[in-house]
Design a protein around this nucleic acid. Sequence first.
DNA 1: GTAAAATAATGAGTTTGAATCATAACTTGT
DNA 2: ACAAGTTATGATTCAAACTCATTATTTTAC
Lengths: 306, 306
Amino acid sequence: MQSILEIRHLQTLLALLETGTLSGAATRVHLTQSALSHQIKQLETHYATPLFERKTQPLRLTPAGQRLHTLAQAIKELVDEAERDVARLVQGRAGKLRIAVECHTCFEWLMPAMDVYRQNWPEVELDLVSGFHANPLSLLRESKAELAIVSEYKKSSEAVFHPLFGFEIVGLVSCLHPLAKKDHLTPHDFADETLITYPVADEMLDVVRLFLKPRGIEPKRRTAELTVAILQLVASRRGIAAMPAWAVQSYLQTGYVVGKRIGKQGLRGELYAATNQAMAQAAYIQDFVATLRSVSFNRLPGVVAL
Amino acid sequence: MQSILEIRHLQTLLALLETGTLSGAATRVHLTQSALSHQIKQLETHYATPLFERKTQPLRLTPAGQRLHTLAQAIKELVDEAERDVARLVQGRAGKLRIAVECHTCFEWLMPAMDVYRQNWPEVELDLVSGFHANPLSLLRESKAELAIVSEYKKSSEAVFHPLFGFEIVGLVSCLHPLAKKDHLTPHDFADETLITYPVADEMLDVVRLFLKPRGIEPKRRTAELTVAILQLVASRRGIAAMPAWAVQSYLQTGYVVGKRIGKQGLRGELYAATNQAMAQAAYIQDFVATLRSVSFNRLPGVVAL
DNA sequence: GTAAAATAATGAGTTTGAATCATAACTTGT
DNA sequence: ACAAGTTATGATTCAAACTCATTATTTTAC
């Protein structure tokens, strides 16, 4: 009789189409697969029609599902815009947003996210804090940046960590390399190789910090500034590397370099946006974090919500 | 952090502005005043701003409240439209809609409602079953109408009754008449007067059916076809009448005729849309009923949800 | 100006229904 | 054909939405 539709349902529909599976959508909206299954079933009984074809890959919506998905998109637009306006009304004009980045590859999703954000908050002064910093959190403390992209969650009374996304870090080896045959790479596989990395401190390198250091393994090292350069060196069998899966997906298509799981379980990386307490309250900052998340989810393959 | 906004909140906001009070909005959406108060407080703490100014009559929204109200209107539009589309997709082309009306005054809100409805369901053949019928329910049974406007809820296995709204029936007397001094009219006040009504069966006249008949009072009678005519006769002291408050509100402004409460508690009337079981399932019928409700609520003063 | 009526706010208590858990039923790819 | 991945289902749990009962506040009436 009456409409039971809530925004929650529409968010589910959006996540469903973005991820392509119910379980994917579930992690995206921080609920269980079961919850979403029940949710959609409720809609389907209410509208007396299925909303998507099961048993098909890729996922396909029925016409009714399509219509509701269109609605969901429109409504998300409107709600987001309205909430930005309310934030502006309540908190007044927004301020500066200087971003400190310690992660080379991050520019891949940071740039498009900033482009989107600029549309919504034209009055915010966006800036990148130039250079790479051993400890970007200190920049927050010294008020030289409002936000830092970091790869580790540290319990802290000063900084607030906003989870961005999780991903897999893959080992990169030439397709001709003997290691290319293995199912996954062990710490010892690195021992006799040259590890090619960005020229940054070891604490910024998840392979070293989480995988090699704990086992006391210290391979020969070599650095390169650019992702392409590292990939070229790997292809030329000058060493092996480790990179976020999302950063190298396109290179792997060529076949010269292959991605290997690191350790039996694989090596997971995470990214956070850190701000200080005060900034964490500001809507224009919160919305930037939200933008980072949604842009990353939509552009990067294989990233998951934290 | 994340948006807590749900459509439920937006409906509350809409009802709040339509009725002008929280408690009014509460009956409109079939919740308690307390529920809405809590709901709005939740929004206000979430957005860290009041949404409407208390201690003011009439109700005024804050800028943030305004913004959310605008959002609510836009979203209601979109959702309604989408749900109509889904209904069309699921149930196929809609059919005929012939309306039987037993109530003279009803045309006042029926016409504008039909106009609104025609926009949304252009393919539905709208029709009024001509003339007035002693028993409009029999027209449903005989498939001569899809919907009947009736003033009584009857337990029935065939018909489904959709509540439209409740209202007060006021007694109309000349401002010069001695009864105009009274706080309210008693059954006996009618005994020595001429009761002016539409020319329909007594069962259709709530004053007679619910107020006079039970006390065995049978005043002199006179009929007139048109509301204006009845009002003129009352003004000319040719008798007294009883009409829905919403139907005579504008006439009462002139001051020649005054509206009196009927009985100590006042006399309440109700209206229902009756359909048969099958039609009650059809979305194009359900939406017609919804349109009747919302148009009536918005045009007629003093009507309440049932 | 005060009393009465109406409206809103508040906090405790209850209930509903949305989410989880645990598991079964399917699909799909190797 | 079996394993891996995905969806469905029913019972249970739990949170939050609503109601109830009451107090506070505002409006209206006299």
